[in-house]
């Protein structure tokens, strides 16, 4: 009987230790991520000109190459919003408010959030895989060997490229979406274009809608890129490790974006 109790207690303690271990691991990973970011952003810099050219190349692969998926999804989301909004609003005879509906939902929510999700899938996973493979093939340690800080040369330009590209992509997404909604609403469904744009202008406020959406997209870009570069930098240097890191990037970044979106919305538009 006593033996049985001992075994049960042992198992409970094992469970507790497992919980504690994973808690410690999470906190350690967050600490490593913060130290990495701090050293990448504030560390001893590479020369100004070479940093700019590195940054340009990264903005190209992170931002410019994401343009196609961003504009196409933006166009279709705007068109769907216009169509759905029209179908509901026409019952109440207020179909001229479709512009307002499309613009507010895109500028406040869908623009930043959907762009960040697509960004995490398109650019974040690529960043993680690239950095992870550099680590696996020991390019990072060879850089360190020849006296170049990989945090400054590899991580920093990629991080800044993500932070710069994300708000621009979100703006393009919202704008293309609004034009998609206008195309469906005005040209196809025959809403009078004066009231479409006029209602929109009256409903959307620059400070509380456009700027708040922009702040959201900057925050999402920061978080998604940070997660992506850290997962690559922290990956186990094997092919399996890289694949797991890439998956983690997309999952963590998407969850972080959606969770943060709720908090930011509560702060900006709620009663908080």
């Amino acid at each position: 009987m006593k033996n049985y109790w001992g075994a049960a207690m042992n198992r409970i303690f094992e469970q507790l230790a497992g919980l504690g271990r994973s808690g410690l691991e999470i906190i350690q990973a967050m600490g490593r991520a913060t130290i990495m970011l701090y050293r990448a952003v504030f560390g001893r810099s590479v020369s100004h000109a070479s940093f700019l050219s590195l940054l340009t190349r990264q903005i190209y692969s992170v931002g410019v190459l994401s343009l196609i998926i961003i504009t196409v999804s933006g166009l279709f989301i705007g068109m769907v919003l216009g169509l759905q909004g029209y179908n509901i609003l026409v019952r109440y005879g207020s179909e001229q408010s479709v512009g307002q509906l499309v613009a507010l939902s895109l500028v406040r929510e869908l623009g930043p959030v959907v762009t960040a999700l697509l960004f995490a899938g398109r650019a974040g996973s690529a960043l993680t895989a690239e950095i992870g493979l550099m680590k696996a093939t020991e390019q990072l340690s060879s850089l360190e060997m020849i006296g170049v800080d990989p945090l400054k040369r590899i991580i920093a330009p990629r991080f800044w490229a993500g932070v710069i590209s994300m708000p621009l992509l979100a703006c393009i997404f919202s704008m293309v979406g609004i034009f998609g909604g206008a195309m469906v609403g005005i040209d196809w469904l025959g809403i009078y274009q004066g009231s479409f744009w006029g209602n929109m202008e009256q409903a959307v406020d620059f400070r509380s809608d456009v700027v708040d959406g922009l702040i959201k997209s900057v925050v999402f870009g920061f978080v998604a890129t940070w997660i992506a570069v850290f997962q690559g930098y922290d990956a186990t240097p094997t092919s399996e490790g890289i694949s797991r890191a890439t998956t983690r990037t997309v999952v963590y970044a998407s969850l972080a974006v959606l969770g943060l979106d709720f908090i930011l919305t509560a702060v900006m538009f709620g009663e908080l």
Binding site: I59, G63, L168, M175, V176, E201, V210
Partner: peptide, 21 residues
């Protein structure tokens, strides 16, 4: 990249002037 930056800023200006009036 230059075209991309311009397009992003242009979209923001359009959002400000055309959409929020």
């Amino acid at each position: 990249v230059g075209a991309f930056l311009l397009a992003g800023i242009f979209a923001l200006v359009l959002l400000a002037l055309r959409v929020s009036g």
